[in-house]
Write a protein that binds this DNA or RNA. Structure first.
Lengths: 242, 242
DNA sequence: GATTGTGAAGTACTTCACAGCT
DNA sequence: AGCTGTGAAGTACTTCACAATC
């Protein structure tokens, strides 16, 4: 996961489990692909395979949204696309600001899948005066001084932090003070935010460390397996040479 | 979570829960910061605050590693740094290849926190012949043709995919065939891999959609709260004007 | 007196398996 | 006959709360 949460664990969002919410975008992507191929209906089995989950989980997930399928048939692709989009709030437009236009910020600004799903890059913000005015992904970078006015003028509620770690908390506080209530943090820091503000984090280094853990374990298991091949307690009476 | 897993859920990794493994890097980062400030010991309460979790969870997490604390005192910072590093496999060197040197690939190559923790960028690989030989983050980009020889010559077991979605599955298959067994996928696609290969995914678009869901819900709750302010069942007998 | 380490209780999520609908 | 929707069972994770230890 590359993910940090910040939700009151008590009140579950309109009865939809967090784990289900996290999978809806996955289903939506798979459904969009089917829709583009003009596939009219899909079974839980097929859709689950496309999304990389098992079908019981998918059906349970959909059951939280309502009964949108037809027994014996499956799900109507277009209808599901609409229902999930609506549930995720993608039928409205979300202006987003990206703060910190280094390599990563530029990559995010250029990321296509951004615009496609209701998200619009309202502004790119950087602390370096030399960056101000420079176009990145067709948008002129603005200076951090403008942060507050950009947020309020554009009604921005989602901010992306792609600054160095040292600047992240301060940027976060300014975003929140200006009215941002959801933050996607790429800086390798724990952000502290007031109640009611959601933070999700994406952290390359953490993901690699988790992979390293499992990678190391694989090496260990191989060694173990090799060892147990020599002298296991198998279904044969093990007689050691005296 | 910008996170996808691929683990046999039955056999838990050396008894350490996956959720715990995912937090170890977080503790390690907090501990490293303390170490740099030459703080000798830290209590579960303090460390938990720095890592953004609660202290009971942290103690439980550490209990899976062993009894590394001292009652009445806390944890020795240096010792814990070492133990967690070892557990995560960071005491060894992990050569990593990054495939797809666009904006994002370049950002990853330049990411400092990379090298700091046992990870070494062994090669940058791109399919564009025009990129070949160009230096990015001080390393000459190599052509995809070289992928197999790079992997085997450097003993690479971790690969990072930062290609467009369309190329990801094919790149993934080549990486796996060449010997990579852990993949960090930034392309917005579900990768299918054989058993024994770990995939974690980082997906900007999914993270934003999850934020949008909660953002939308906040708007809904405000409306609800406003409505219930008008006529709730509070601790006062509500007498409506007739 | 302070703080860890951990059983036990509580909560969240997953999977099973089958009744119910088309 | 096929496929969904869902209670019930199973598993994983979190939190509590306190005995053990320094």
């Amino acid at each position: 996961m590359a993910t940090g949460r910040n939700h009151r664990p008590a009140t579950r969002s309109r009865g939809i489990p967090e784990a289900t919410v996290a999978r809806l975008p996955l289903y939506l992507r798979a459904l969009t692909a089917l829709s583009e191929r003009s596939v009219p209906t899909v079974s839980s089995e097929e859709l689950a395979a496309a999304a990389g989950v098992n079908s019981a989980k998918l059906r349970k997930d959909f059951s939280y949204l309502g009964s949108y399928g037809t027994r014996g048939v499956g799900y109507d692709v277009e209808y599901l696309v609409y229902q999930i989009s609506r549930e995720l709030g993608l039928t409205q437009d979300w202006p987003v600001v990206i703060v910190g236009i280094g390599n990563l910020g530029a990559a995010l600004a250029n990321y296509g899948g951004f615009a496609s799903r209701g998200f619009r890059v309202a502004a790119l913000i950087d602390a370096d005066p030399a960056m101000a005015g420079k176009p990145v992904a067709g948008i002129a970078v603005q200076h951090t001084d403008e942060l507050e006015s950009i947020i309020s003028d554009n009604g921005v509620s989602i901010g992306v932090i792609a600054t160095p770690a040292g600047a992240a908390q301060q940027v976060c506080e300014r975003l929140v003070a200006a009215g941002v209530t959801s933050i996607l943090n790429f800086a390798p820091t724990v952000l502290s935010v007031p109640d009611g503000v959601d933070v999700r984090k994406v952290d390359l280094s953490i993901e690699l460390q988790i992979l390293a853990f499992h990678e190391q374990r694989k090496a260990g298991e191989e060694a173990e397996a090799a060892a147990s091949r020599k002298g296991p307690d198998g279904d044969m009476p093990a007689v050691m040479p005296a």
